[in-house]
């Protein structure tokens, strides 16, 4: 396989909680706890999971907005922050769109100034940057003459998110990180923005990391999907394989929580009870065992490996692999 455009190796981020008066080692929020994955060029990797699963922290780590506790991030095989790939150059290649379209635009800057900012950081002249900003506005479907001189509060949520996309594209990145980028939008507007993202991807040959809590949208956008639970990867695989033949009970439960869209066959049972547990003190062994219907003693003592279960398809569950000591382990029960 060719070198992945973006690769994450054993990424860990612990946020220490306030330590005691005497400097005792306090506990930590284990937001991301040993995550590794790779994205091939022009793919879209969807990342799904519930609140506290670490998907947004992963995005911020990837973007180098927070410093990882440990682990490496490689872009086209090169570690970020080395002489071969300085941080500033990495940030020209990888850009991010945030969830809150309003908070991610400076209220005192006009739309075109916000878009033109990043190119000027990378040495484009002010005049050229403004031209580029207007061309991009046009490309994301906002008529420059009408919108370039406006302030963020004068735009609707969908229009603002188009501006944010234009802003991210202004430095001509190869990878776009979309962190819940359509979650705050109305459904009718969400569809427009998703279409725009698909078109831009084709046109510019972009690679997407699409982070969302919405499984339907992730399925629609992604070629690969990664499911996170309490800071770890539960399952990763090609979209259709994962959605139609999930191997991790958490993935199955997530899919089972989708609404029925059929008044004659409504959901009658919730696949999971309770809320996702707190990432401060994740349970030992498999982190999902406290909510898993198939949990056995082995699940609370030994942490499952993220092992292959199919072509590019892996699941971190004792049931998916033979010889783990789980009574439903693959091999005994098909």
């Amino acid at each position: 396989m060719s070198t992945p455009i973006l690769e994450v190796v054993d990424l860990i981020k612990h946020f220490p909680l306030a330590t005691g008066l005497l400097g005792r080692a306090g506990s930590a929020v284990r937001a991301v706890d040993g995550v590794s994955f790779a994205v091939q060029e022009r793919e879209t990797l969807g990342i799904v999971g519930e609140s506290g699963c670490g998907k947004s922290t992963t995005a911020r780590l990837l973007m180098q907005l927070i410093v990882p506790t440990s682990g490496a991030i490689r872009y086209q095989g090169q570690t970020v922050g080395t002489k071969a790939l300085p941080l500033k150059e990495f940030r020209r290649q990888v850009q991010m769109v945030f969830q809150d379209s309003y908070a991610s635009l400076n209220p005192r800057l006009t739309v075109e100034d916000s878009i033109a900012f990043a190119p000027t950081v990378h040495g484009v002249s002010g005049d050229q940057a403004v031209r580029k900003a207007r061309a991009l506005l046009d490309r994301v479907g906002l008529e420059p003459a009408r919108f370039a001189g406006r302030y963020p509060h004068e735009l609707s949520g969908g229009q603002r998110q188009r501006v944010n996309i234009a802003r991210a594209l202004a430095v001509e990145p190869r990878v776009l990180l979309l962190d819940e980028a359509v979650s705050a939008l109305d459904k009718s507007v969400e569809a427009q923005v998703l279409n725009l993202l698909l078109d831009l991807k084709d046109e510019m040959g972009l690679t997407y990391l699409f982070i969302s809590h919405d499984l339907e949208v992730v399925r629609f956008m992604s070629t690969q999907v990664l499911v996170m639970y309490l800071g770890r990867i539960a399952e990763v695989g090609p979209t259709e394989a994962l959605y139609t033949a999930s191997r991790h009970p958490y993935t199955t439960a997530l899919l089972g929580s989708l609404l029925s869209m059929d008044p004659d066959n409504r959901r009658t049972q919730a696949p999971l009870a309770g809320d996702p547990p707190n990432p401060i003190d994740p349970p030992p062994g498999c982190r999902f065992h406290t909510r898993c219907a198939y949990a056995e003693p082995v699940c609370s003592t030994r942490e499952p490996d993220l092992g292959g279960v199919g072509l590019a398809h892996a699941a971190a569950c004792h049931m998916a692999h033979p010889g783990t000591g789980h009574s439903r382990a693959a091999g005994r029960v098909a």
């Binding site: 969908g158 009718s188 629609f220 070629t223």
Partner: peptide
């Protein structure tokens, strides 16, 4: 009709464009 068809829903082939309602919610 538009609301129902713009839902990125399971059966739809991923990667194909979604039908949309043009424009923004009313001011």
């Amino acid at each position: 009709v538009g609301l129902l068809s713009t839902r990125a829903h399971g059966g739809r082939l991923s990667g194909n464009r979604l039908p949309t309602i043009p424009g923004s919610p009313p001011d």
